[in-house]
Simulated scan of single mutants.
Amino acid sequence: MKKFGTAIILAGGKSSRMGFDKQLLKINERSLMDRMIQKLSREFEEIIIVTNKPELYIGLSHKITKDILKDMGALGGIHAGLSHSSSSLAFVAACDMPNINMEYVRYLKDRLNDNNSLGCVTKFGDWIEPFCSFYSVELIKNIGKYLESGRRSVHGLIKDVNISYIEEKDARKFSPNWDMFLNLNTREDLNKFLLNAGGWSN
């Protein structure tokens, strides 16, 4: 099994705060999801999209899947994506992240090459950033049991397993303003991003 061939995009959220389905987000008249797929395809051979609307992706050559454990939030999406991964470690992002930093992705890979941990996530103070992270397929059973017990926190799941952590100060060398972890959760977030994006074309 290849170590780093897979990227998972979570697109199954309810988008209640945005007011419309974030899978349909467009920036400069182009789908944000299309941009993400194109960017991640330069680094990963396999793209897995976890979505509650697979009909939106008919005709794509990528793997499309629904949650296996329904209504379990982001961790349920990670579980579904890992369950279809052909790589031992998969990169996970959300469909509303416009600023994925591929240099940082490669940095995470390098860190994982130096150890045998079951993933790599970034710290934000005492908390973590659950996305723009790597998770191992060896976590599938752990996640399933954790979700079935009624818990959904990614932070709660990984605190008891062998995970590598990137300290905030090290991550900020790649993204001083932390925008590589930006999620467009609301219309206000989107409008602010568009206002500041300028000639954004990544």
Rank of each mutant, 00 (worst) to 15 (best):
K169H: 14
G144C: 07
E168L: 11
I64M: 04
E129F: 13
G81D: 08
D170V: 12
K2N: 15
L75K: 10
K66S: 14
L32V: 07
E43D: 14
C132N: 14
T51S: 15
F124G: 00
I58K: 15
V154P: 00
P54H: 05
A11N: 13
G59K: 04
S61W: 01
H62R: 01
K26G: 00
I9W: 03
D71I: 01
C120K: 13
K141R: 10
L75I: 10
E46V: 08
F131Q: 07
N177V: 11
V161P: 00
I100A: 04
E46F: 00
Y104D: 09
F20R: 08
I68P: 00
I140H: 02
G81A: 09
N202G: 09
K123D: 01
G81C: 11
S133R: 03
S164H: 11
G199R: 07
H84E: 15
H84D: 01
K70P: 10
C95I: 15
H62T: 01
N99Y: 10
N162G: 01
K22Y: 02
D114R: 14
S87H: 05
G76D: 06
A80T: 06
N185R: 11
S61T: 13
P54L: 02
S117F: 14
D21L: 07
L56T: 01
M36A: 01
L32R: 06
Y107T: 11
L139W: 05
A197M: 12
D34C: 02
Y107I: 13
Y104V: 07
K145N: 13
T65A: 11
E43L: 08
E138Y: 06
G198P: 08
V92I: 15
G19L: 12
A94S: 09
I9F: 03
N183C: 08
F4C: 10
A7V: 05
A171G: 01
V161H: 09
L182V: 03
Y146E: 02
F4T: 09
S136T: 03
A93T: 15
D110L: 09
N162P: 00
L75D: 09
T122E: 15
S87T: 12
Y146L: 02
Q23C: 05
Y104C: 04
L195W: 13
P130Q: 13
K39M: 10
I47M: 02
D126M: 05
G150A: 04
S83T: 13
I158E: 02
S15D: 10
